[in-house]
Design a protein around this nucleic acid. Structure first.
Length: 326
DNA sequence: TATCCAAGGTAAGTT
DNA sequence: AACTTACCTTGGATA
């Protein structure tokens, strides 16, 4: 919003052949609303589309507050970017330093939800010690707003899988089938489009170690490439209708649908009932267990404050997964 | 070194 | 509608 791109310089022109022109700058984090923590935001199991050039992405789950670089290829986003934008960012000295193939500030505000009012979100949670601890430990963590198709594929891949391997799968998909871009002397590939994935067979995806998820991803990509359905069609529907709508995709049940609603489509009340949250229900909110997904989801959603229940869930998920005591 | 187990679940088949 | 079971693969735990 009011954040200025800061000092910029044009391409240094020293990159390898094929490099796209590079701009650099810094986004002053004192100008956004509330605190921000890049590492917690990008390594909390929400997005699997960023990578750390230092090779330590998702290596440790409890680290936060570091100043590592992260990079991704941002696909075209309506009203934000009109072509692939390669960007790397790091958080240092109260700013988000960046280098990109264009001005990435609008895209960063969009992807990292820099407009969210965290104070209001923290205040919406029940007055319970476990939430206070989670907010305190990961203060500044934002929800992400991943692009819909990559998010959908990421969470189809998440079934019975550890976060580090989910991330590895998305990187493998990008490298194998996505469009490569030259960036600072390296080649970085965009996440494949539905068309690029649909053009592949199940066997190609199994070679990337997707296992039984391979046909799910392939068929879902095909549905979208063929124009049969699109995850963005859920936007505008009521929360539960939107969730039902997403389950038409192969490999997408209630839990994966909730993840896409929360981490891509902006349904902040969506509460994915995964193994960690089910554990938290058993340990802390047993009265919310209503036996089936829909009713348990409703009960937990109210228990977590309603409007921002998914935000609260994400803090709780990250806190529990990092070893925070229950 | 070998074996076992569970990982941010879903689809298909039974009862 | 509720309950079972199979499903790829692999890193980490256990023997």
């Amino acid at each position: 919003m009011t954040a200025e791109p800061g000092a910029r310089s044009d391409s240094d022109g020293t990159g390898a052949d094929g490099d796209e022109a590079l701009e650099t700058g810094a986004l002053d984090l004192s100008e956004i609303r509330g605190p921000f923590d890049l590492q917690s935001t990008l390594e909390s199991g929400q997005s699997y589309l960023w990578d750390r050039p230092d090779g330590r992405m998702y290596e440790s789950i409890d680290a936060h507050g570091g100043d590592a670089w992260y990079r991704t290829v941002v696909p075209p986003i309506d009203g934000v970017t009109d072509e692939d934008l390669v960007v790397r960012v790091r958080q240092r000295d109260g700013a988000l330093e960046w280098a990109a193939t264009g001005d990435p500030v609008p895209a960063l505000e969009h992807l990292l939800r820099l407009d969210d009012d965290l104070a209001a979100i923290y205040a919406s949670a029940p007055d319970d010690d476990i939430f206070a601890r989670a907010f305190d430990d990961y203060r500044g963590m934002r929800l992400v707003r991943d692009p819909p198709f990559p998010c959908l594929v990421s969470f189809i891949c998440s079934a019975q899988m550890r976060v580090s391997r989910i991330h590895g799968m998305q990187m493998a998909l990008s490298e194998a089938f996505g469009t490569p871009h030259g960036f600072a002397g390296e080649s970085i590939s965009a996440f494949p489009t539905p068309e690029q994935l649909a053009a592949r067979g199940e066997d190609d995806l199994r070679e990337l170690k997707l296992g039984y998820r391979a046909p799910y991803v392939q068929q879902t990509a095909e549905m979208i490439a063929d124009g049969e359905a699109n995850p963005t069609e859920a936007v505008g529907l009521s929360y539960e209708d939107a969730r039902e709508s997403l389950t038409r995709f192969v490999g997408v049940g209630d839990k994966v649908a909730d993840c896409v609603l929360l981490f891509s489509l902006g349904y902040l009340e969506a509460v994915p009932l995964d193994t960690w949250i089910r554990g938290a229900i058993a340990d802390h909110f047993p009265e919310c267990d209503r036996g089936n997904y829909t009713e348990t989801s409703r009960a937990l959603r109210e228990r977590l404050g309603g409007e921002y229940a998914g935000y609260v869930q994400t803090y709780l998920f990250h806190y529990l997964r990092a070893g925070g005591e229950a």
